[in-house]
Nucleic acid binder design. Structure first.
Lengths: 213, 213
DNA sequence: GTCTATATTTTGATAGAC
DNA sequence: GTCTATCAAAATATAGAC
């Protein structure tokens, strides 16, 4: 299949290599800066300066500071997606979901920037006036729902004890992840975040796992 | 015992009622505002306006924005002190320390402002350039040390299983507290933070408590 | 102890040339 | 697509009167 020449031309022009490179560079620097200083602590002038572009040059790609924030959040979303899904895109259920979380924590312990971005923006976005407030509420709600479903499957499955309280274990598990991130960042990486989470998972299995004999 | 008149006079003047009231009002409003918007998101003009005083009037009591932040952190420190100590000021040890934490979580679940202040400033202060960076590092280090000592006492005491890993359990317990706070704030109080922490404590005791027969 | 006035930067954003 | 020039508002802080 081939496009008529005028459409081909349009496509080429819209995604010019130089343009995308500039956009990507701005986005990467905004990500880094907002991870460290938050949305409120980051100015578009700082981002522009580090990206080696003028402030107006930046605003050509992202018309406002909020647009830049949205792009940063979207980028993080992409980086993390499919973590709790299998190769076919189906959600992981039962203990597989918890093992995937342990895998995610291990992955995160090698990218402080991504962890920092979440911890910083998450706390900042607790404020109802923050542009990412809705995002963070959805993030927590999604996390809880996903884990609750995974646990309910584990009960039905016969691999988790029927007395396990799904919502409580979901809350505690997500709390451990977020809380360990704070300690890990504050300790400048000296805390073994992945190891501690795996220890938690081990105790969880001792308490609630049902193993076939 | 009585002071010579000139000293008495000095003491009276230094802590004039009107002055302390203004200071206290400014402090309360700064606390509230920084809890919501963080240090970077709060301007001294906003604090002054809400306190019904001019910007310069505020700066008479707190010479700079940083001084205001330090006062806010000190104030929180006072509110929370003696939580892990008994009436005589001695540290609580063994399971008593964990029970005191559960009590603290229950108390916190009735003062969102205090919780919000910690969660917001904690994340903001992860940045090495933040004026409260040293404070937050000390906060985490203190928390870990206190809990590790409490657990080691419990082992020596014979009330905790000798295989309990003190540092890991300390990290997980503090992580649960901080992580639950984020979820609780994001859910606008609909999550039962105290109940979930007590559930965690129950599992912890099932796993590690040694009960006399 | 509180005020008005002011200085100096920095902020987010726009207009318009190239 | 990137720039310079510019704007209006907001920021922290100081000086000095009362």
């Amino acid at each position: 299949m081939s496009f008529p020449r005028q459409y081909r031309r349009t496509l080429t022009e819209r995604s010019s290599v130089a343009g995308d490179e500039a956009r990507a560079k701005i986005l990467a620097i905004a990500f880094e800066l907002m991870a460290e200083k938050g949305y409120r602590g980051t100015s578009i002038a700082q981002v522009a300066a580090r990206a080696g572009i003028s402030q107006s040059g930046l605003l050509h790609h992202f018309p406002s500071k909020q647009d830049l924030l949205i792009a940063v959040i979207d980028y993080r979303q992409q980086v993390d997606s499919r973590t709790l899904t299998d190769a076919a895109g189906h959600p992981l259920l039962g203990w597989a979901a918890f093992d995937a979380l342990a895998e995610l924590v291990r992955k995160n312990s090698e990218r402080p920037q991504v962890v920092r971005m979440f911890s910083t923006l998450c706390a900042e976005a607790l404020d109802a006036d923050h542009p990412a407030h809705t995002w963070i509420q959805g993030h927590f709600a999604d996390g809880e729902r996903t884990l609750v479903e995974a646990i309910e499957f584990g009960i039905a499955d016969g691999t988790m004890h029927p007395d396990i309280p799904p919502a409580t274990v979901a809350h505690l598990t997500l709390a451990i992840m977020d809380g360990l991130q704070l300690q890990w960042l504050a300790s400048e990486g000296s805390l073994d975040m992945a190891g501690e989470f795996e220890a938690y998972l081990e105790y969880l299995k001792i308490t609630w796992e049902i193993v076939e004999e």
